[in-house]
């Protein structure tokens, strides 16, 4: 299974390390041409504005949409969840989302860095105990389309959701060393 991790900026290496430990082969995607023959793509956490500017400059938007239509699964964490949403609440005027997942995401919803936090989450379909969510200047998922399943919530807001072959998490499973969400992505989202 070949999984690309968008490597323009942010915590892409941690995703790759976790995926490789689970037996997937990974590609650090820096140019749109690298999107061909990927089974899945992770858009990692980072600064959503910085990543979206670089995506525009290097022409990533249409190729990601096309590859997704052609069967590539997509997972966005934090900034990545903002980028795949159809609606970004509180977006910068020129910030363009990829707009493939039918969710509305609010940027920096929990506040500034001093409000960043960790919390235990009941994550649907994951085996074992609660999942420790690490939220860094995190967004939340404010609206969900009809086909979107909420997977985890915190304090009344959805923080993880799935729509078909797409996954969005407001927190950072790549920072915890707990590979269960990556395992879920590979087994239930990419493979199905």
């Amino acid at each position: 299974m070949r999984i690309g991790v968008l490597a323009l900026q942010g915590a892409f290496r941690e995703h790759m390390v976790t995926l490789e430990a689970l037996g997937a082969s990974t590609v650090a995607v820096r140019q749109p041409e690298q999107l061909g023959d990927l089974n899945g793509l992770i858009i990692p956490g980072g600064e959503s504005t910085a990543i979206s500017k670089l995506m525009t400059t290097y022409g990533f938007y249409d190729p990601i949409r096309q590859q997704h239509s052609a069967g590539m699964a997509v997972w966005g964490t934090c900034a990545g969840a903002i980028l795949i949403a159809t609606q970004v609440l509180d977006a910068l005027p020129d910030q363009e989302p990829i707009g493939i997942m039918d969710i509305g995401v609010r940027r920096n919803a929990y506040g500034r860095q001093v409000d960043s936090f960790e919390a235990d989450l009941e994550f649907k379909h994951l085996p074992g105990d609660d999942y420790r969510g690490v939220f860094i200047r995190a967004p939340w998922i404010e609206t969900l389309g009809e086909d979107v399943e909420a997977l985890a919530s915190h304090d009344g807001h959805v923080v993880a959701a799935r729509q078909g072959d797409m996954l969005a998490t407001a927190f950072h499973p790549e920072l915890t060393g707990d590979p269960r969400v990556h395992r879920f992505f590979l087994d239930e989202i990419v493979a199905s």
Binding site: G10, A11, G46, S116, F117, E118, D120, V134, F135
Partner: peptide, 23 residues
């Protein structure tokens, strides 16, 4: 009910730096 929320942890502090990488 008990979701064990904590702010200002080392992981949350180093986590923001992780998000800035490559920038």
């Amino acid at each position: 009910e008990n979701v064990n929320v904590s702010t200002g942890t080392l992981r949350v502090k180093t986590g923001l730096a992780e998000m800035l990488k490559g920038g």
